[in-house]
């Protein structure tokens, strides 16, 4: 319990530092006033808008005001659109999260059985085929997987029409089917990496003394793998999957642009361009919380798999 509290404290401290750094970064590169008024605005108009947006006060005052609101769940108002940031994020955040989670689920469901099969058949043709296939899949960037999927399933087989995104509010079924292709795009390179990782990890465990003892007790290779080695082999894979979950969120930001999925990726790009600090700040915080959360979960899971790590 104390361990968990300590972890949480570190997470909060990191979020604080990160939020201040990103706040300060925008202080250096300029505010949205020129974006809104254009370069020909009179100094009076600029000063007036600055005062209206509260930009005439010091960085620290603004930061702590923002922080005070943020911890109560108020994400502030967009400088450009004058809308609550929460409302602007709503559906977009759901889309990005669904995409990331679908990709993650696909990666886990495909890579773990394949890794076990590959390790079980070590050196045979199936294992060799998977190893070579893996190496090739790993070299295909997810945005090119996306393009290949669009050509094959969209243009040749006509299973879906690229660019016709359906909101989950209108039709949850059609939404999930549309999201399947971007989800495969972000999952595929990860599937290959995770499979390889698990295979190597299992084979390493199989060399250890406790597995030899299991053989001595009359266990078959298959049972020893299932009953003993697999559990230990999963440890590095869990950490790797956590990194994967974080990378997939980054990946979905790229992929959602290819498949025209309205997610937080494009909103982030547009908002940075417009210097819309409240929106950018909210998205960066969401991304950071996600990254920390998956690492946190992976540590808790690792401990569940290996009680020795509880210290």
């Amino acid at each position: 319990m104390r361990y968990v509290l300590k972890k949480l404290a570190v997470m909060l401290a990191t979020l604080l530092v990160l939020s201040f750094l990103s706040f300060a970064a925008f202080e250096m590169i300029g505010d949205p006033v020129t974006t809104i008024l254009g370069t020909n605005a009179t100094p009076e108009a600029v000063a007036e808008l600055r005062a209206e947006l509260g930009l005439d006060r010091s960085l620290f005052v603004r930061y702590f005001e923002w922080l005070g609101r943020f911890v109560t769940g108020d994400f502030g108002t967009s400088y450009i659109y004058r809308l609550p940031v929460k409302g602007m994020l709503g559906e977009k955040l759901v889309n990005t999260l669904v995409l990331t989670l679908m990709g993650f689920a696909l990666a886990v469901v495909i890579s773990i059985p394949l890794g076990v099969v590959s390790a079980r058949n070590e050196g045979r043709w199936l294992d060799r085929f998977l190893t070579v296939f893996n190496q090739i899949v790993m070299a295909i960037p997810s945005f090119f997987v996306a393009i290949l999927l669009m050509v094959v399933f969209g243009l040749v087989l006509r299973l879906f029409t690229p660019g016709t995104f359906v909101s989950y509010k209108d039709s949850p079924g059609a939404f999930l089917i549309y999201m399947l292709f971007p989800a495969i795009s972000i999952a595929l390179p990860r599937v290959a990496m995770t499979e390889k990782m698990l295979r190597t990890s299992i084979l390493e465990e199989m060399q250890k003394n406790y597995v030899r003892t299991a053989y001595a007790r009359g266990m078959s290779r298959r049972t020893a793998m299932k009953a003993h080695a697999l559990k230990n082999a999963m440890l590095p894979v869990i950490t790797f999957l956590a990194v994967g979950a974080a990378e997939m969120l980054a990946g979905s930001i790229v992929i959602e642009q290819i498949f025209s999925v309205p997610g937080i990726g494009r909103l982030l790009m547009v908002s940075i361009g417009q210097r819309d600090v409240p929106v950018v700040e909210a998205i960066i915080m969401i991304l950071a919380v996600w990254v920390m959360l998956v690492h946190f979960i992976s540590e808790i899971l690792s401990e569940a798999f290996d009680p020795r790590m509880r210290s």
Binding site: I29, A246, A250, I253, G273, I284, M292
Partner: peptide, 20 residues
């Protein structure tokens, strides 16, 4: 460690977009 916890491609996208 704290830099590598964040996906480097995501960081690069954000930094490059901010630098403009």
């Amino acid at each position: 460690d704290s830099i590598t916890a964040f996906p480097s491609i995501l960081l690069a996208i954000i930094i490059l977009k901010v630098l403009d």
